[in-house]
Nucleic acid binder design. Structure first.
Lengths: 362, 362
DNA sequence: CTGAAAGCGCTTACAG
DNA sequence: CTGAAAGCGCTTACAG
């Protein structure tokens, strides 16, 4: 009670309360941060006065500065947040990561991806965090660059490799090769590929050898190499395989891409898709054209999301442990590592054969 | 080049670089934060020395403290993050919110919900943010309390009301009433309800009048009141309507709840579910028991998520603008409001009639 | 159980 | 175009 000024000239701080009570700032700080360090009655008194003065509690930024840590981890996504939140693959990763950080009581700071692929570094520089998790960005991503320059512990997921950062990746190349080998064993010889972006330049369309060689998304390169490994080993010319690069991982883009590929002559008998969503779209394109799967056309996906088992027919795909990828990334950054020796974790992939693949048509 | 000490005794700061170059700290700061304030050549020089010294750029916490803002917004969810990320309703909200904050270049800080419903306030107190968005928590939620005590701009979504905070809500009561009226018009007289938690105490099971009256989730109360309004107006006794309270918004819990309700005698002819996911589960329970929908049993959902149109039969439900809710929450906090006059936005709901409801069986 | 002192690293008027 | 000064609000040894 008493001196509740009508006009608050300045917000209350620890000092305001200390002055009011004729105690030191230390004691007021202790009332909040180390309750066992002072007399309960005094603490009670301090909290009362704080309330009366409209004190909002110790300032979080000041605390972070002084303590040298924030209790938050920054997350940088390839795509915009609003998109990432609709993609089942990113979502499963995010879920795994959240499980790990939440258990540890750590905040997760979602750093925005500017829509226009510009700047974006600013948000990274201003992020009050103790480390970064960078999810599947391009070699030359500006936000990755900015994160690395901050010299905080950083875990990169999927791509790209950086010697200063820890890495969690999956066996992309081996998984892709397994899918292609499976189709080769079924007698297929005419292939086509539906790919993710090869670079962060917004291009979509056919991707010839030059563009493939210049890819700045290592994962896209690895998967193409996996397919190429298998086809070349079977005596086929990889250069002749049409690769359709699509901007987004959605059913719609998959359908569009498959449409383009299926309208070529000669028509491919097998489509290798970079994801289950793209493959599901390809299934629709096949249906539209009256092509039966797998009799007239075989299709493989990648990821093994829940929906892969629900499509008609269910998808042959390459399983990757998405949830585990998130948990592992969280665990690594929470545990830390010896300086100059960031860990690398390689998670396995596995071919899952379902009904979307069958013998090549005669 | 030159003095690259093998052992870094202390991390470099603005001062380190200033000393090295015999310029002031101000000038070094300007090189980063106000490039137009100094000679390009000098700036170049400063950046070079910074790189050489391993300077990580202006410290984010110090910057936040000095500037008095962080560029981040804190998000507090009802449920754990890892769960929120699997719920289509939360996800759509999050997507809308992300669209708004991302466009503004603002970071989103996901504040963890402790699994054990304990504490949680600590993460709120330490969050370096300029405001909070609180998504659908209970009246007595500890994190909401903590957020309010920090006296930062806060937008509450759905519930509960607080005079210090802005509010974005939907017409829950009216929406619920509309669903019940629709069923009454079809001749139904024996109802049952599948509800969300009424309080944050972890209980699930039948919820009688006492428990309903003590509910600490205002939305759950509003929806029950909406149903009750309609039934009472039709001359029915609300007290006789079984309400089954379920802990989670999933298909599985919906199936379990409907199983319990359908095994009662007399069996209800209409089930009012708090969500489309719960209703989809109820559809499964009906199928298991050989009850045809809508001939033997009518079911209504709530939300109108995409899947509501895909169930068999498609769900009659109450549409709420989920994406818009997120966008609105983001817009409000980004725009701010005159002190002492936080805005309240009420978004409409709308009955969507599909095939899961029909005339009451004779 | 309590307090005086040092310092975390920066930005922002302001003066020159 | 550059610099000296003030101050953002706090926590943490340390001494008593």
């Amino acid at each position: 009670m008493g001196a509740q000024g009508k006009i608050t000239l300045k917000r209350a701080t620890l000092q305001t309360i200390a002055d009011r009570l004729k105690v030191s700032r230390t004691t007021v700080s202790n009332a909040y941060s180390r309750p066992d360090q002072l007399n309960p009655a005094l603490r009670q008194k301090i909290l009362e006065v704080a309330k009366e003065l409209g004190y909002a509690g110790p300032d979080a930024a000041a605390r972070s500065l002084r303590r040298g840590r924030s209790g938050s981890l920054g997350l940088i996504f390839t795509e915009t947040l609003s998109y990432a939140v609709t993609d089942p693959v990113s979502l499963l990763f995010l879920r795994g990561l959240a499980e790990a950080t939440e258990t540890a009581g750590v905040n997760l700071l979602l750093i925005p991806t500017p829509m226009d692929h510009e700047d974006g570094a600013a948000a990274v520089l201003d992020a009050v965090v103790d480390g970064f998790i960078v999810y599947s960005v391009a070699e030359d991503d500006a936000r990755l660059q900015a994160a690395l320059e901050r010299r905080l512990p950083t875990v990169i997921v999927d791509q790209p490799r950086r010697k200063q950062a820890a890495l969690v990746e999956i066996a992309d190349r081996a998984g892709a090769r397994a899918a292609a080998e499976h189709l080769l064993a079924l007698g297929h010889r005419r292939f086509a590929v539906i790919a993710f972006p090869l670079s962060e330049d917004g291009y979509d369309g056919p991707a010839g050898p030059e563009r493939q060689a210049a890819a700045t998304f290592p994962i896209s390169r690895a998967r193409l190499e996996g397919y190429a490994d298998a086809l070349r080993a079977a005596g086929l010319r990889w250069e002749d395989v049409p690769v359709q690069e699509m901007p987004l991982n959605t059913r719609e883009t998959g359908e569009d891409a498959a449409g383009i590929l299926l309208d070529r002559t000669p028509r491919p008998t097998a489509i290798l898709a970079f994801s289950d969503l793209l493959a599901a779209g390809a299934l629709r394109a096949a249906a539209t054209r009256g092509l039966r799967v797998p009799e007239a056309l075989s299709i493989t996906g990648f990821d093994n999301i829940a929906e892969a088992a629900q499509t008609r027919p269910p998808l042959t795909t390459v399983r990757q442990p998405l949830l585990e990828k998130g948990i592992t990334a969280g665990r690594l950054i929470l545990e830390g590592w010896p300086e100059d020796d960031p860990p690398e974790v390689l998670l396995p992939t596995e071919l899952v054969v379902r009904a979307s693949t069958g013998p090549a048509p005669a």
